[in-house]
Amino acid sequence: MTDAAVTVTAPAPALARLKTGLRWRALAAASLPQIAFFVFLALSWEGMARWLHSPLVPDIATIAREFLLICKNGFVLQEIGATFVRMSLGFLVALVVAFPIGIASALSRTAARFFEPGIILGLTVPGLVWALLCVIWFGVSLASPVISVALGVLPSLVISVQHGVNSLSVEVIEMSRVFRLHRTAVLRRIWVPWLYAFMISGCRVGFSLAWKVIVLVEIFGMSNGVGYQLNAQFSTQNVEGVIAWTLAFWLTMILIERGVFRPLEKHANRWKKGSSHE
């Protein structure tokens, strides 16, 4: 009843060379298309800038100079950091609130009906409205960005949790009942890993929504952060400034995607067949 395993052996140095070769190739395959995108974008932009010859479309050199300027003394990091702390806090608050609401809505039809209008409200109201209201109510405090981000992200997270809970198969639940698994085992071995795998993509979407809200709050009610800087550049008609800040934030988001969400997703889905590709 043992399963035969076939091992292919190659001389050790050749194998090692082959392995490093493969690793380089994989790295190239993963990053070349992205580098190509940046090059393509830069070239088209530069072409457009030269062709239009307008101060509204600054060329790459000007943008790069501006970018270096905001990078001086780590200023850009400081501002992005401030934005990120607000965003993450709001997001976490939403996540913590979304779990009980999502679980209740999944388990009880009455709860689902109760929360439904609220969720639709949340999906309908633009982030701009939350931003304005929170700035009016809470002023220039940490509460404004955190609460408006939380409100902006909450409905989609609730829906995500609800779907996650509903999509666990009845068969698995029956199995846990037959074997009389302890409540903590059901929670730790079934619900947590299942929802973890399910929620990662929901969180990723939620996080990009959070950005769209936070930038508005910072425009209206904060005295620092990326949103504030964008607004400051805008009010002085500094196009390259707006672009440089956008660029900085874009790069940060790519880093977060690669450094946080990808690895988390990979980990959460490690048990799924066909999830080993990038």
């Binding site: 029956e174 199995m175 009389r180 698994l181 085992a185 071995r189 799924k272």
Partner: peptide, 26 residues
């Protein structure tokens, strides 16, 4: 214990943990 037509394993636990989990019972 029940053996169902479909194995009904917990896909996110390893083979070993799928067996061990039934020891965490009431």
């Amino acid at each position: 214990s029940v053996v169902f037509q479909q194995p009904r394993l917990l896909d996110w636990l390893t083979v070993e943990d799928n067996i061990r989990v039934v020891f965490e019972r009431d």
